[in-house]
Amino acid sequence: MPKITYVAVDGTARTVDVPSGTSVMRGAVFNDVDGIVAQCAGNAQCATCHVYVDDTTLDRLEPARPDEDDLLDFTACPRRPGSRLSCQLTVTEALDGLIVHLPERQK
């Protein structure tokens, strides 16, 4: 199963198995990783599932679709090059080893 690493603001990292087909957001919620709010349940409506994808793993991702791109202009913490909405990142084998950094706040 693909492994995803979530790094909290204080630097603590947690690596969990996330089944292919679910989202990076679900992986966090399901494994009780703090720092993702996901108010709209993964519907690309709320931007409270913002993550910063680590530079070293950024190239594994498809670019954001237009609605995700729009939402990324409205995150609580500043948008950076690695900014993505974790609910829009579907886990596949290709994402094994993905590292995401959690922002300071989501709302």
Partner: peptide
């Protein structure tokens, strides 16, 4: 009003 921080309140 386009800055991300300012938008935060509307999004929460």
């Amino acid at each position: 009003g386009g800055t991300a921080a300012a938008v935060g309140r509307a999004m929460s």
